[in-house]
Design a protein around this nucleic acid. Structure first.
Lengths: 243, 243
DNA sequence: AGCATTATATGATTTTTGTCATGACGCGGT
DNA sequence: ACCGCGTCATGACAAAAATCATATAATGCT
């Protein structure tokens, strides 16, 4: 069971200790940077700080939720569970990511699930507080809209990539995404099974394995279990572009 | 009825005529309903009213644009042009639709193209005016965010439908979308070629034609050229669900 | 350590979908 | 009316990807 850890992070319970303010800068929660100290105080007043174990569900699709998630550490997968039982992993959330399940001002039903890939430390913040701040602080409102817009463009791009590219292009996309967006390193140990990597790439695990093996044979990547190293990024980019 | 609206709209240059205000209610531009008369006056001050002929490009992907589009009549396709030359039609815009190409507050680059499927009458409004109103009128800001959120959920849904369903399910989706979202009638004459219907359904035109033919054989639809009639909506829904 | 369970890998086969080729039909322009 | 062009339709075939089967490696548990 996930445990509330307000005791372990006592500094964070009140703003006077400087913890939440620090968290916002340190963890790069850019979305909150326009807020004044007073507004932050208001925001975090009754927030809950939770640690999820690997594999635990942070949010479940189609359930109702009145809070948003701010990831402080760890990785989580955001995925849609389709009617046929197959999952589509939409993105990976990491430190500093801010997640609204179905969106503010649009009902409380979550349109995707979130599951911890590693232990995840996060803060759950009441949506109502965000809507209040949305009205009071225009820069914050602009930030929220911009966040949504970017998400929109991201999804538009993913739609095209997933429907128009052949499998090697999609595998290349997934590997480049992990390198550049998540780990920011050429070699990384991804806490993702082949099944999950396949769900990110819109294919079966068998197909993913085969293509990864081809990439390995072509010296584009080095693979050892969950550790993947990008050896030839330019070729992967070419494969991604080519389709 | 339609004539009255259109004749008033021709003098839409000033609010004194009551036209833009009428337009907002009559054409159901809900996004603008929170605005005061003064704000509307400000918004439409130097707007441009344009008529596009069938086939004309209203917005071109990857170009810069500083305005948003409000469709007053006609139909237009919003589509992404992918690197391999194939198009993905994301949605059809109709009367009352409000379109921001790449989004407010996020650069001016358009992330998709818009082309008129029929003659399209629309107003182009300066994005800067919207951002000003966003700051001044909170209800309007909420409406914009809600619009974006809905768009997000729509794209999420389309991503899953296009990647997880077999072709018959996707064709069923397209037909149901046209019936319920665009024409609001069981029988409709769609100004879309088979190629375009295929681009909405993420498949080749040949595949679309074949599946439409099967649906016709199964008495699910009646087809005569561009006129399509949904005869058995429940079966189409079942096919859509099934995958 | 030994066993059960899960994840990974790989070949054989089938299903799904796209590509190519061809013909029919409809429509605008001369 | 005739031609040319684009759309629509349909069959034959090829390519892409999923499924199935099975083997191996890794992991967790008692």
């Amino acid at each position: 069971m996930a445990n509330i850890i307000e005791s372990t992070c006592t500094n964070c319970a009140k703003l006077e200790d400087g913890c939440c303010k620090t968290c916002i800068t340190e963890h790069k929660f850019n979305i909150f940077s326009p807020l004044t100290n007073e507004e932050i105080e208001f925001l975090i007043d009754d927030k809950k700080q939770i640690i999820y174990k690997t594999g635990e569900t942070i949010m479940k699709q189609n359930t109702s939720s009145t809070h948003v998630v701010c990831v402080r550490s760890g990785l989580a997968k955001l995925y849609v569970e389709s009617d046929n039982g197959k999952n589509v992993i939409v993105r990976i959330a990491k430190k500093g990511d801010f997640i609204t399940g179905g969106g503010l001002f649009n009902g409380s039903v979550q349109h995707f699930s979130i599951t911890a890939l590693t232990p995840v430390r996060c803060c759950l913040i009441d949506s109502a507080k965000l809507t209040t701040l949305f009205s009071e602080n225009n820069s914050f409102a602009v930030g929220l809209l911009r966040y949504n817009t970017k998400q929109n463009n991201y999804l538009l791009n993913k739609l095209v990539n997933h429907t128009q590219k052949y499998m090697p292009g999609r595998v290349a996309d997934t590997l480049l995404y992990l390198k550049n967006e998540i780990f920011a390193e050429s070699a990384f140990q991804a806490p993702l099974t082949r099944q999950e990597l396949a769900e990110m790439s819109n294919m079966t695990k068998e197909s993913f394995v085969r293509i990864l093996h081809q990439f390995k044979d072509s010296k584009l990547v080095a693979v050892d279990g969950n550790t993947i190293e990008i050896l030839n990024e330019n070729s992967l980019i070419a494969i991604s572009k080519n389709g």
